[in-house]
Design a protein around this nucleic acid. Structure first.
Lengths: 354, 354
DNA sequence: CTGTTAGCGCGTTCAT
DNA sequence: ATGAACGCGCTAACAG
């Protein structure tokens, strides 16, 4: 030590107790001093490690340390811990479209799974996630809207040791995990379900998404059922639920109204049900309505919403993310979620009418 | 140095180049070795400091270092940097109700302001923010839904040096900043505006919020205008925009329909406008509609939405947050946003009719 | 004026 | 139960 005798506080590691600032955050050394033990002991006690082979710390010491820590209000400095262990006790969720209920469901599921593990989910709403992740690390990262040209960035991140889970329909794992949940076939299932007992099936879809798989599935299914495609049965709306409501009213007010509606999201389907009921129709009898996505809200409402979607998507996603965060060092792979039909009250299974 | 001669790699600080793992992240020492300079020089070059008084590093060296860093793909380790400097280059936004457009606007504004400063906003969606913030630090933190009994937790965090900005109507600053934006008077302004040219004013409000200031302002304003309170003019809905749409249809289908609608949010007002137009009414002439919140969407739509709200709220909030993050060590205070009336097309200023 | 040396910060962990 | 060596980037003090 080169410290000037009279100035150097002995146990505190030298941070500015001498200066005018009040002591900011207590360090492990202060706790050690307070408890009259070494920093190593404090570390072992508070991080609960060293259970590897026998006790190692006596009960008396444990409580002395605990008390000291409480008294000082000690909280470990995550930056220091991260530097030493390489773990941040954090997972990052990179989510575009935070307004989307899908994103909220991801957050909720991860939150629930992470809390008991002492891991904090942080949400990154930056379109430029690749750059951010180059410097800010986490124990695992979920990225929801990857383009094919992001592949290089992903590879680089993976190579640096970032544990990545990527949501993408066709990308192959390459140092990162891929979460997959392909909509097309499931959506055809939905329309097909309606077509079993209906010949006049309309589609409620967001105006901007008419090139996507959810709408294509509609035209496909109509075509392969040998039915004519009726332009007036395509109800495009602006993406808001009010828009979906209004468009449903319009569809059902046609001279020759549809007897079933395929909505490309559960949220649109909910609006459609409200609109149909407003017009005095009995949903599931007078009119069949089916959604897409298998959200919990649909399951719980009355009448319960028929829908298609992956099973248990959010919880399993959260589970995998946290597995990775905890460092089970398995090889990355694909987590595929096949879609299923949930025929509930709003479009029940019926004896087939020709 | 106590290192065993033959094993210790000289410049790398000893991380496991020896082991089987590929080199994970390049460190500043590797860059220094690659460029043939000291770590200090690398640090000065890459962090752009030492600009205090003149350059300090020759152009030739600068480019040598830059090249070396690029070649290795060096990115500074934020944890190490944070430990040394106490800065994380991060701000945390603790937001409940992430689905609320208000939260999205906060995120968007902060994102925009933070990016050029090299600061990354991270969103915390944990109801238990107080606990999380005890261990995870950031250069500044915004907390949106503080209860009065959180005060103790806030004080503690502030004492530890966390820079806090708190959104609360009545709390006083105490080591943390308070953002304030009181709705009541502004809402009365809105209803008052409608009452200047209408006697039949309905209210569109969320069913659960009828004890809140936005609804109270309606009853208050009606009362002080000497008008009777008409139960059938209260249109409560479920919080969705489809619900607002449907409720507006109901209100306007009354035997004695209102000539103006006060909606307690801009989003409800937008739905109300859609509904009124659907019924063939000319908004701003046949019917006046006003919202609450002064969102940008309202300003841009046609007809433009009349509303009340704070001016420039999100950008100024973002500005203050980043000021704090950058450490301008001023005393905390209150940032108050008085509300204003924006009389636009959906409820224009009219010559007064008695 | 340019570049280097050396040591710090704080929690973890190996060897004693 | 402890001493002390880490990790990695920063920066005061110093040397050419």
């Amino acid at each position: 030590m080169v410290a000037v005798e009279g100035l150097q506080p002995v146990h505190t590691g030298g941070i500015m107790k001498v200066s005018n600032r009040v002591a900011l955050r207590p360090t492990i050394r202060m706790v050690a001093a307070e408890a009259g033990v070494s920093t190593a002991t404090v570390s072992y006690v508070l991080s609960g490690r060293r259970g590897d082979s026998g006790p190692g710390v006596s009960d008396a010491t444990v409580s002395r340390v605990r008390n000291a820590a409480d008294r000082l209000g000690y909280q470990p400095n995550q930056a220091a811990r991260a530097m030493r262990t390489g773990r941040t006790n954090t997972v990052i969720l990179s989510l575009t479209m935070l307004s989307d209920p899908w994103a909220l469901a991801v957050i909720e599921a991860v939150q629930r799974a992470a809390a008991p593990l002492g891991i904090t989910p942080m949400i990154l709403a930056d379109a430029d996630w690749a750059t951010v992740l180059q410097t800010h690390s986490a124990d695992a990262v979920f990225v929801d809207a990857v383009q094919s040209d992001d592949k290089k960035a992903l590879l680089q991140l993976a190579e640096r040791g970032t544990k990545l889970l990527v949501f993408h329909e066709s990308m192959e794992p390459a140092g990162f995990d891929v979460i997959r949940s392909i909509a097309g076939p499931g959506c055809e299932l939905a329309v097909g379900h309606l077509l079993r007992s209906n010949r006049k099936v309309a589609c409620l879809t967001v105006a901007g998404a008419m090139a996507g798989p959810r709408f294509t599935a509609y035209t496909e299914a109509i075509r392969s059922a040998g039915l004519p495609f009726r332009e007036e049965y395509v109800g495009d709306f602006d993406g808001t639920s009010a828009g979906a409501y209004a468009t449903t009213i319009r569809l059902l007010s046609l001279a020759d109204p549809p007897t079933a509606i395929y909505a490309t999201t559960d949220y649109a389907a909910v609006s459609a049900i409200n609109a149909a009921q407003r017009l005095g129709l009995k949903v599931g009898t007078d009119i069949d309505i089916i959604g897409v996505g298998n959200t919990v809200e649909g399951e719980r409402m009355t009448p319960s919403l028929s829908t298609v979607g992956p099973v248990d998507f959010f919880d399993r996603l959260a589970g995998l993310l946290l597995d990775r965060a905890l460092g089970a060092d398995e090889d990355p792979g694909v987590l595929d979620f096949p879609w299923q039909l949930f025929a509930r009250e709003s479009a029940p299974l019926k004896s087939i009418t020709p």
